[in-house]
Amino acid sequence: MFHLPLRRRLRFRLPLHDFDPNPAAFYSFGCRIAMASPSHHELSFVHLLTGERFRLPYPPAPFCRLLLSGDLVLAFVPTVGRAVQYCRLGDVEWRVASCTEPYVLEDLIFLKGNLHALVRSEDVGGLCYRLAVANLSDKNTVKLMFLGDNLDTQAAHGSSYFCLAECLDELLLISAVGDCPEEFHVFRWQSMEGKWTRTTSLGHCTLFLTYFYFVGCVVPTKGMTCFSGYYFASSLGPDHPRVRRDCLYFTDAKRKWIEYSLADGSCDEFVAENLEGAGRPDSDFRAPVWVFPSMC
């Protein structure tokens, strides 16, 4: 792990399996880390503050995203998949629910107990994006209750990907423009009007993304501490000069993170230093994950 303010490398041992030919993929949920180990056929969740750990069987179908809400775990493939695998703590097997043609699940997020979905479809006019509330029925289907109209064509133009986020209990849509990406656009859901409107203010909050999906929101008044983990970490207070307000922090599969300001459109890259020898020499470097120990 890498401590940003002190520019020091720290070591933090996670309970991984020895001699695992396929190192685990990591996902963050506030102060928890999920480790997916296909070689040992398990999904392991570890609470970084208490050490509490629980395990689930490994999902039967491929996935690259995990969501956790209470005792419910969702596994899915955004942007291309129609199916959601879900399992509750204590279950011995996963269930699968799918949405019907022509809908594709671009992204999912839990907000205020509801599962929201950004749904993509295609018609004669091209790709359409709509927001929906998704329900996992007992008939192995994803029931979609659509909200409002399609995302404006201009908002969708030039976007390399979308992801759902939340800030101060409000639903957001983040659009990345360019492959690097070069910039981010943020849209706020207006429930009364049933549409997305672009915003450049997060109420002085800061959003954190890990390789194309939303991880968390730092609220300045709550004094939240965050760590950027897997290979590097930072201990950041709400008024720390290294954390800018109304900004997005984004990590990719390299030893760097991006700081993008919604206020002035500036985009700065930072490289994690002193990471020689971190991880296994025969494994690919995976995207670092943001961990928020005080988000319990």
Rank of each mutant, 00 (worst) to 15 (best):
263 A>H: 10
260 Y>E: 09
203 G>D: 01
31 C>M: 07
110 F>R: 03
273 E>R: 12
223 G>W: 07
159 S>M: 13
1 M>K: 13
241 P>G: 03
93 E>A: 12
292 F>A: 05
163 C>H: 11
131 L>T: 06
260 Y>Q: 10
126 G>R: 10
176 A>H: 06
112 K>Q: 13
281 P>A: 01
87 C>G: 00
183 E>F: 12
66 L>I: 05
289 V>R: 03
256 K>L: 05
228 S>Q: 09
207 L>N: 06
17 H>M: 02
294 S>T: 15
77 V>M: 06
2 F>A: 11
54 F>P: 11
217 C>E: 13
13 R>D: 12
257 W>G: 01
199 T>G: 03
128 C>F: 04
55 R>A: 02
75 A>Y: 14
277 G>F: 02
97 A>L: 09
127 L>K: 14
99 C>D: 00
174 I>F: 08
229 G>R: 06
11 R>Y: 10
202 L>Q: 06
279 G>Y: 11
65 R>C: 02
136 L>P: 11
136 L>K: 08
205 C>P: 02
253 A>Y: 05
140 N>D: 12
283 S>L: 00
209 L>P: 03
127 L>F: 15
27 Y>T: 08
201 S>G: 03
208 F>R: 01
54 F>W: 15
247 C>W: 04
119 V>R: 09
7 R>H: 13
273 E>K: 11
295 M>D: 15
218 V>W: 01
26 F>H: 15
217 C>Y: 13
292 F>G: 07
3 H>Y: 10
61 A>E: 13
75 A>G: 12
196 W>N: 04
21 P>E: 04
228 S>T: 05
137 S>W: 06
202 L>H: 00
290 W>Y: 04
227 F>Q: 09
179 D>P: 03
157 H>Y: 10
208 F>P: 00
126 G>L: 08
287 A>S: 15
3 H>K: 10
34 A>L: 06
9 R>H: 05
128 C>T: 11
103 Y>G: 02
86 Y>L: 02
267 C>D: 03
274 N>H: 10
31 C>H: 15
208 F>S: 03
201 S>V: 04
160 S>H: 14
157 H>L: 09
90 G>C: 04
42 E>P: 00
82 R>Y: 06
36 A>Y: 12
121 S>M: 11
256 K>W: 05
64 C>P: 02
66 L>M: 01
194 G>H: 07
198 R>P: 08
15 P>L: 03
